[in-house]
Simulated assay, not measured.
Amino acid sequence: MDNSSDTARAAIDPSRLTKLTDQLQLGLVQLKAVSGSTNTELATLASAGQAGHLSVYFTEHQQAGKGRLGRSWVTPLGSSITVSVLVIPGANVSTEALSWYTMIAALAWSRAAERVAEVPVSIKWPNDLLAGEFKICGILAQLVPVANGYGVVIGTGMNVDQDREELPVPTATSLRLASSGSIDRTGLLAEYLKELVRLERSFRQVAGSVHVPLPGFDGQSLHQMVSAKLATLGHLVRVEFPDGSTIEATAVQLGTDGALILEDAAGKRREVLAGDVHHVRRADGKYA
């Protein structure tokens, strides 16, 4: 962790990322001062054949980003890490397995944040990261057509240096607030890319199987690693669906397809593939 105040709002250092590009064999790397949406712009490059596997698109100031369900995602200048990465896994990984790239990114960010900022980070299903009980990162992955099939653009927005008043909702936080120290954003971004590339390459080596141990990860499968980080498991949750309906049950397991498996009071189980998940608080103010 870098506790020097003069690096808190420092721009991402392109020279350090150039060295990383060679080391990790990244594709096209674009660092933009201002962007509408990193996902949209990288997806356009991918569809046009101008961006290949492991291309990276970063902006210091995202002005028209989108989260899940079309929600806006705007970042104050120099306060966050807003980055999209294109992965093109090829025919060896089935289309059904591509949905796991959201969790691969979540796992990569959790490992990077814990190493650089010394902040324990957990995953909130389906696409958020938490520091304690507060949201610190959102993830949006989208399928894009490429020359030989499909790729996935994984967009992430990590709150790094925001003050409390700069955060969009009271349930959010930043790494600086969670750690009480300034964070080297270039170092944090580099660590995320290293972890993402390691996980992605191992995932392709096992042909997208989530139950086969990933090479280089101490015999653990992707399913095991994600489940161990999934704060949602064991919680009483309320799930809100796009059609307006809701259910309340306990999250008990992560399915093979990435679904959240819920169990109600009667012991009946149900798989949820999509929806807004809220951890329910008990009457004493603690989470269930």
Rank of each mutant, 00 (worst) to 15 (best):
G78E: 13
V119F: 07
I12G: 04
I154A: 08
L69D: 01
S35G: 03
A106G: 15
G70V: 10
V197W: 02
I12C: 08
G255A: 07
D128Y: 03
P145F: 02
K286Q: 15
I136A: 02
P215F: 15
A249L: 12
H223Y: 14
E114W: 06
P14E: 11
G132D: 00
E60L: 12
S35E: 05
V169D: 00
D243C: 11
V74W: 05
R270M: 10
A190Q: 08
T102V: 15
D22N: 09
I247L: 13
A265Y: 13
K32G: 05
R115W: 12
L273M: 14
Q25D: 10
E200R: 02
P145N: 06
V85P: 04
A48D: 01
C137S: 06
E263D: 10
Y101I: 11
I183P: 02
P89K: 05
L254Y: 00
T7G: 03
L260R: 00
L260P: 00
A274E: 13
F241A: 04
G90H: 13
S180K: 07
A178M: 03
G155P: 12
T232F: 02
L45Q: 02
L98N: 14
K135C: 04
E114S: 11
S84M: 10
A105C: 15
H211Q: 15
I104Y: 02
Y57T: 00
N148K: 13
N148E: 13
P120K: 13
K229S: 09
S35T: 08
F241C: 04
T102C: 14
P145G: 06
V87I: 15
K229Y: 08
V226H: 09
V210F: 06
S180F: 07
E191A: 04
A113R: 00
R115A: 15
G49I: 06
S5T: 06
Q63S: 10
G157E: 12
